[in-house]
Design a protein around this nucleic acid. Structure first.
Length: 270
DNA sequence: ATGACAACCTGTGGGC
DNA sequence: TGCCCACAGGTTGTCA
């Protein structure tokens, strides 16, 4: 489910309600996430006070004095604020209760997400990640250089977390459409000028999506429980067979790349 | 090193 | 209404 904008939306939603708060109780109903939740997580969290929240790639970090909680939402996860007397629903796997009476509730039907305790801020999952897409490190210069030795499709490159983090299937489709680049074009067959446009487009799409609270497809909600509105702005994702909004002449075509759905306009994207 | 692909798991929607 | 299959926002690990 969540790509970078959804994770950032979650972080911004919970931050004002968790920073400075102390954990008074932890309930774990199902430890079987992508990796089993370690046996000592409750003990680590108990009594700890939240210092700050951060995001790295699609990971959410909640920092305490004694370490950090590393959360990934996988495909179907959400982390939201809830009140103590709200009954847990199916797939509500973890509750982190704060002394304010609010609690952080982790919900994840498919259990592709994860939760790790970090004694310091390093973790193998965070090693070898590429630059943040919204940072200056992710530049046209960088992407152009990186792409020179890659003959795989450009969509594959921008979704490769070693190249740049946080660009998932929805926003990869959207950015390539806006930049007018065919998703199946070989990465090393795209000019510097077009990469300049692509990098700016990726940044713009992500920033815009964050501003409107992410993309709610089925039931994504941010930390504050509100749906995101970027779905209204989607140009190609989920619109295969419909008319292109730019040229209004051609139907959007769908292909599969690495078993992921790709939608593009054969007329506008070259 | 790169790339193709299976695996992890549940829910949903379409076709029959 | 029900059954079966394909597919869904992600990432890792394996094998060629």
């Amino acid at each position: 489910m969540p790509e970078l904008p959804e994770v950032e939306t979650t972080r911004r939603g919970i931050e004002p309600h968790v920073v400075g708060r102390t954990v008074t109780a932890v309930t774990i109903r199902d430890r079987r996430l992508r990796w089993p939740i370690s046996d000592d997580l409750e003990q680590r969290l108990q009594g700890a006070r939240v210092l700050s929240t951060r995001r790295r790639a699609k990971y959410l970090l909640i920092d305490f004095q004694n370490g950090s909680l590393l959360v990934h939402l996988g495909m179907s996860g959400s982390l939201r604020l809830s009140s103590k007397n709200e009954e847990p629903r199916k797939h509500d796997h973890v509750d982190i209760v704060l002394e304010s009476g609010l609690l952080l509730r982790y919900h994840d039907p498919r259990r592709f997400g994860s939760m790790h305790w970090l004694d310091d801020t390093s973790h193998v999952l965070l090693d070898h990640l590429g630059p943040e897409p919204l940072s200056a490190d992710f530049s046209a210069d960088y992407l152009y250089r990186t792409s020179r030795k890659r003959s795989s499709p450009v969509k594959h490159i921008i979704m490769d977390a070693k190249v740049v983090v946080g660009v998932g299937n929805i926003y990869a489709n959207e950015a390539l459409f806006i930049a007018g680049i065919r998703p199946d074009r070989a990465a090393n067959n795209i000019s510097k000028v077009r990469y300049e446009l692509l990098v700016e487009t990726i940044k713009q799409v992500l920033v815009t999506a964050i501003e409107v609270g992410g993309t709610t497809l089925r039931d994504f909600v941010g930390g504050d429980g509100k749906a995101g509105y970027f779905a209204q702005s989607l140009q190609v994702y989920g619109r295969a067979g419909e008319l292109c909004k730019r040229c209004e002449g051609r139907e959007l075509r769908e292909i599969r790349q690495s078993n992921r759905s790709t939608v593009f306009c054969p007329n506008c994207q070259r």
